[in-house]
Design a protein around this nucleic acid. Structure first.
Lengths: 342, 342
DNA sequence: GAATTTTTCGGAAGCGTTTTCGGTAATTTT
DNA sequence: AAAATTACCGAAAACGCTTCCGAAAAATTC
């Protein structure tokens, strides 16, 4: 069983290759019967068009490039799955690459994808000097790009983001209302847009409730459980354990919780916790973890829609869509069930 | 800044395109100086070769197709990351698709990838009637394929698998040695090769220790926490809770544990647990979850190596490599610390 | 029934590479 | 110094498809 080409079909039916091509791209200038005949024999022969040749000729690939920082943390897995489902339904394939939180790697990924003629890019960027410039030049050339979740304000592309300030504020305020006096925020990388925004929300809540700087702290961490653990080790060493932690994500929270438990602290009796970007395990652990849930799939789908819109309509205005989520309050942050949570 | 081609360089330097091509593919029949000159001006112009055109011409793409059932469950995320790291270092890109445990979807994925001229495929298959035939025909044509983790014995390709029987046996025997009398196995889908093998290991341990059929059960489940929870609901309803559970993976275990805790059971005092395919959260939850750890990255890398070997050496013998792991015993399965665990 | 329009199709160029073949020019051999 | 190699390079075909242009055939108009 060899690989057939358009020419094999043409030869077999004594038509030209242009006619065969027309049959597949249902053009108007072909007789219905010949089209049907061609399609049928092609199917019988087991012919599949060669997307590579098609890409070369059409100068577009029907592929969408997706660049995420990682997909070990559930969140981007969900993003990728949702993107894939949506874009396949629209006739696109996605090529996924991960930058590993490294801007140079990200730049290479994007270049590889562009060289492979992806028709557009959806990126959750790890921003740095070099790639800002690169993105700006690509956008100026008219390359369709959408930023998802993380953004860089100076780049004029459509963006899909979560309202981090607002929900971070809610989560923090919840802890304050529960009566926790000393609250620390494990913030993730400070130069990440999502971390920055969550810090803003955190500070806003502190300000509103007139909590003085002695009674809160913002501690930069990574995004992994390990890094939550390391912070706690450090805090224990300095005898500096607050009443509650608000964490940049669930994994950091879980790491921190584990380390505290190992050292005899009880959660939430001694120390309360709130996570963010809720994962499936939030309700599986003990105590169940309060967390802010993001509409991950909807955000991904929206990003896909915006990109396709941009591809089909090159001079559409860029827009920024801000999603809201929900705050799921669970045992890890509830001191007294009689207090209204928010 | 437009997109330059090989021809632009040729024109600029007054050489032919063949010479430029030779410069990039460092062929022998080109003068060192002209080669250097071409490479330099190409770099200055910001030229990138077009991989699509290259693929069409060379009839190979330097892309490897990867098909996994899902990557929401950490395991395949790790696989994908490890494959990507390895294959990129060897000059390949990977195209990842997920079959969602659906054999038809998987077939479509594989066909899409083959049409896109991937040079080879690494598959963790969801086996069914249709795709067995398809794989067999592709293998017969000489298409390079490696099966990873899951396999179908009847298809003559190289395979990388984990020794599920052995480590399932160890895990089960550990529970028996700890003195648990009634042990249930939540097995995953029975027609999955990994589940089948783990069931074999489980039964082997039962047999060795002369545990009669009344005192164990094999219950088919899915692979998600939700499905672990459902099983427990059912068992509680029938007042049929054993002393210990051995689960097909950590998520099923965590789901089951949660449901039991919700119903007042203590883990491990009332019911003990062992998971499989250890995830990062195994040591973050309370109680920490005993689990069998697989050398995921090594397995992925090996699969990559075998595939490249097969690509570069078409008539190499197929081989099957069986990996071993480690059994990490934690609180969730330890009744009495004085008993030797295994 | 001739003129015009419409339908349908083939030829050929083009997409950006690689690669074969052949031909100079330079070098080595005698 | 003529002959034989060797080093280097250009022309052109090929990869499998799309698309433009023009032409033949069919249908329509007058």
């Amino acid at each position: 069983m060899k690989h057939f080409t358009i020419k094999d079909i043409a030869d077999k039916l004594n038509v030209s290759i242009s006619t065969v091509s027309r049959a597949f791209n249902n053009k108007y200038d072909i007789k219905e019967e010949t089209k049907a005949l061609i399609l049928k024999t092609a199917k019988d022969m087991g012919y599949h068009p060669n997307p590579i040749a098609k890409s070369l000729s059409k100068k577009r690939s029907s592929n969408i490039g997706v660049v995420v920082p990682e997909f070990i943390n559930e969140y981007y897995s969900e993003i990728v799955i949702a993107l894939q489902n949506f874009l396949i339904s629209k006739g696109y394939q996605i090529l996924v690459m991960q930058s590993d939180e490294d801007e140079e790697q990200e730049l290479m990924n994007v270049q590889t994808l562009i060289n492979n003629m992806v028709d557009g890019l959806i990126i959750a960027p790890t921003i740095g000097r070099k790639n800002i410039q690169y993105y700006q030049s690509k956008v100026k050339e008219g390359y369709p790009i959408v930023f998802l979740n993380r953004i860089e304000a100076s780049i004029p592309v459509s963006k899909v983001i979560f309202n981090n300030v607002k929900w971070s504020f809610f989560a923090t305020e919840h802890l304050i209302r529960q009566g926790y006096k000393k609250i620390y925020h494990l913030s993730g990388y400070k130069d990440l847009s999502v971390s920055y925004e969550r810090i803003q929300g955190f500070k806003k809540a502190m300000k509103k409730h007139h909590i003085i700087e002695d009674n809160y702290k913002i501690i930069e961490t990574g995004l992994l459980a390990k890094e939550g653990m390391e912070v706690i080790e450090d805090l224990i060493f300095h005898h500096d354990i607050p009443d509650a932690f608000f964490c940049v994500n669930d994994m950091v929270a879980l790491g921190a919780i584990k380390k505290l438990k190992d050292n005899g602290y009880r959660v939430p009796e001694d120390v309360a916790f709130v996570g963010f970007t809720e994962t499936r395990i939030a309700e599986l652990v003990t105590p169940q973890l309060s967390s802010v849930k993001q509409p991950t799939c909807e955000m991904a789908k929206k990003a896909g829609e915006m990109l396709l819109n941009r591809i089909n309509n090159p001079n559409a205005e860029t827009e920024t869509i801000v999603f809201n989520g929900e705050f799921n309050i669970r045992k890890s942050s509830v001191k007294d069930a009689s207090i209204p949570p928010i």
